Simulated scan of single mutants.
Amino acid sequence: MAFREPIHILGAGSIGVCWAALIRSSRPTYPVTLLARNNNDNNNATTNEKKSNQNSGTRDISLKRLHPKPSVETLQVPQHVIGSKNHHKEDLLEHNGIHNLLVTTKSYQAKEAVESVLTYLEKETSKIIIMCNGALSVKEDLAKFEIPLVLATTTHGAYMENNKQDVVHAGVGKTYIENSMPQLAELWDSVGMRCESLPTHEMNVTLWQKLAANCVINPLTAIFRCNNGELLLEPSFPQLLHEIVDELVTVANLDSDSTAGGEPITKEALVAFVYEVIRDTEHNRSSMYQDIVLKQQKSEIDHLNGFVVKKGRAAGVECLTNEDIVGRIKDLETRNKNGH
Rank of each mutant, 00 (worst) to 15 (best):
H303D: 13
L270G: 02
C132G: 05
P78S: 06
K69M: 13
N284E: 10
V150Q: 02
L22W: 12
I278F: 02
G83N: 01
I129R: 06
S71Y: 13
L22K: 14
E186T: 11
K144R: 14
R313G: 15
Y120K: 01
Y108T: 10
A185P: 03
S236T: 13
D280R: 07
V81E: 05
R285N: 09
L241W: 09
L248Q: 05
S25M: 15
L241S: 05
R65K: 15
S180H: 00
E323W: 04
N322L: 12
E122W: 03
L248T: 04
N338F: 08
G306V: 10
N100A: 02
G339I: 08
L241A: 07
V114H: 06
N322K: 06
E94Y: 05
D331P: 00
K311Y: 02
L151A: 00
Y176P: 02
A2W: 13
L270Y: 00
V150T: 07
G192P: 09
S299R: 10
F237A: 06
R37N: 09
V271Y: 00
N305M: 08
H201P: 01
I217F: 00
T200M: 07
E124M: 01
F307M: 11
S286D: 12
N44A: 15
I7S: 06
G261I: 08
H80P: 00
H99N: 07
D246P: 03
T153H: 02
E112N: 14
V277K: 01
A212Q: 10
E73Q: 15
I177R: 06
F307T: 11
L75V: 09
A152S: 10
V271K: 00
N40W: 09
T58N: 13
D302A: 12
L92I: 04
L118R: 14
S137A: 12
H242G: 05
H283D: 15
L75R: 02
S287P: 07
A170R: 02
I130D: 12
N55M: 14
A2Q: 15
R313E: 14
G192C: 10
D331V: 13
H169Y: 08
D60F: 08
Y108R: 14
V77Q: 04
A212I: 09
C215D: 06
R285T: 12
S258E: 00
V172S: 09
A252S: 01
Q79G: 00
K298E: 14
Q296Y: 10
G306Y: 11
G306S: 12
T266D: 03
T266I: 06
M160C: 00
G13R: 06
P219G: 01
C319F: 05
E146K: 11
G13W: 03
V271E: 08
N228Y: 10
A272N: 05
S287F: 03
E124S: 12
L101S: 04
E318F: 11
L93T: 12
S56P: 08
M203Q: 13
E243D: 15
Q165L: 14
S107I: 11
K210G: 05
V72F: 02
T58F: 14
V32Q: 03
M288S: 07
N284D: 08
C319V: 09
V308E: 08
N204V: 00
V245N: 03
A212G: 15
M131P: 01
V293P: 06
S126N: 06
